[in-house]
């Protein structure tokens, strides 16, 4: 098993405080660029909405609650913490999260294989 950083798109493909989706080896990954007082943070979670059963999470709203940065499902409004994948509204549900970084103009994911 190796860990490998893979470029999935350009930083310009991302939208401030909103999401896009990248196809990474058959997996749909939702990428969010969160800008807060000049701090930029990128999050990557699975695009699959486990409640709505559709590939839509990248179209969800970005928000926060206390210190957590959230994505909110566009279908039924469940809130997910983007760092941990944990669903705030149902502890039995969580999202797969990915390690992600900016490298020059590239956005890279760490893939485990």
């Amino acid at each position: 098993m190796t860990n490998q950083w893979t470029t999935v798109c350009k930083i310009d493909d991302l939208v401030d405080n909103s999401g896009v989706c990248a196809l990474v080896e058959h997996n749909q990954v939702a990428l969010f660029k969160v800008v807060n007082n000049d701090n930029i943070h990128i999050f990557a979670v699975s695009n699959w909405d486990p409640v709505g059963q559709a590939n839509v999470l990248y179209r969800g709203l970005v928000g926060s609650s206390a210190e957590q940065t959230l994505v909110i499902s566009p279908l039924y409004k469940q809130r997910y913490c983007m760092s941990t994948g944990r669903c705030l509204d149902d502890e039995n549900i969580s999202l797969q999260t990915y390690e992600v970084r900016q490298e020059g103009k590239d956005v890279q994911l760490k893939l485990v294989r």
Binding site: V34, N36, L61, V62, G63, S64, S65, I72, K77
Partner: peptide
């Protein structure tokens, strides 16, 4: 904060 599905 960053806002949420209510205020945004």
């Amino acid at each position: 904060g960053l806002g949420c599905e209510v205020c945004k």
